[in-house]
Simulated scan of single mutants.
Amino acid sequence: MMTQNRRLIGIILTVVFILLIPFIAMQFTDEVNWGLFDFIVMGVLLLGTGLLCELVMRKVKNMDYRIGILALILIALFLIWAELAVGIFGSPFAGS
């Protein structure tokens, strides 16, 4: 039980650390210009991905299935991130 709680705390701290990167960069350059909505969307995306990965780690016992599902989750994260950032698919949600 304690290990699972540590992993959850680790997920939350990792999300906070990743979100601190653009926040700190905004203090030093105008090249990074995130608004509150950007931080909320990325926080939800990262936290959701982390929690979904944690769920898979807890529930899926077969290592091959676990690796496959985690790979699909991470691919989905990167595709959504790329679409929101630069619009690789040209959806209405594209960032450019």
Rank of each mutant, 00 (worst) to 15 (best):
M1H: 01
M2I: 12
M2Y: 09
M2S: 14
T3V: 04
Q4A: 15
N5K: 08
N5I: 06
N5R: 05
R6Q: 14
R6F: 12
R7V: 08
L8F: 04
I9N: 02
G10S: 02
G10R: 02
I11T: 13
I11Q: 08
I12Y: 12
I12K: 06
I12F: 15
I12D: 06
L13F: 11
V15R: 04
V16H: 02
V16I: 15
F17P: 00
I18R: 02
I18M: 01
L19D: 04
L20F: 15
L20E: 12
I21V: 14
I21S: 00
I21P: 00
P22A: 04
P22H: 02
F23D: 07
F23G: 13
F23R: 12
I24C: 04
I24E: 01
I24M: 10
A25I: 09
M26F: 08
Q27D: 06
F28I: 13
T29K: 10
T29A: 08
D30H: 14
W34Y: 05
G35F: 09
G35M: 07
L36D: 02
L36Y: 01
L36I: 07
F37S: 01
F37P: 03
D38C: 04
M42L: 14
G43C: 11
V44R: 06
L45Q: 00
L45A: 01
L45N: 02
L46K: 01
L47I: 06
L47A: 09
T49Q: 05
T49N: 07
T49V: 11
T49S: 11
G50E: 06
G50W: 04
L51I: 07
C53V: 13
C53N: 13
C53F: 13
C53H: 12
C53Q: 11
E54M: 02
E54C: 01
L55M: 10
L55F: 12
L55Q: 00
K59R: 14
K59Q: 10
K59G: 00
V60R: 06
K61A: 14
N62W: 01
M63I: 15
M63V: 14
D64T: 15
Y65T: 08
Y65V: 08
Y65I: 07
Y65F: 13
R66C: 10
R66Q: 15
G68L: 09
G68I: 05
G68R: 03
G68D: 04
L70K: 10
L70F: 09
A71I: 13
A71Y: 05
L72H: 03
L72Q: 08
L72D: 09
L72Y: 09
I73G: 04
I73F: 10
L74D: 03
I75S: 10
L77P: 05
L77Q: 06
F78G: 00
F78R: 00
L79I: 14
L79N: 06
W81K: 06
W81Q: 02
A82F: 11
A82I: 03
A82K: 03
A82S: 13
E83I: 12
E83V: 13
A85E: 15
A85V: 11
V86E: 12
V86Y: 06
V86G: 10
I88S: 03
I88Q: 01
F89D: 11
G90V: 07
G90R: 09
G90Q: 07
G90S: 04
G90E: 12
S91P: 05
S91A: 13
P92I: 08
P92Y: 11
F93E: 09
A94C: 05
G95D: 00
G95E: 04
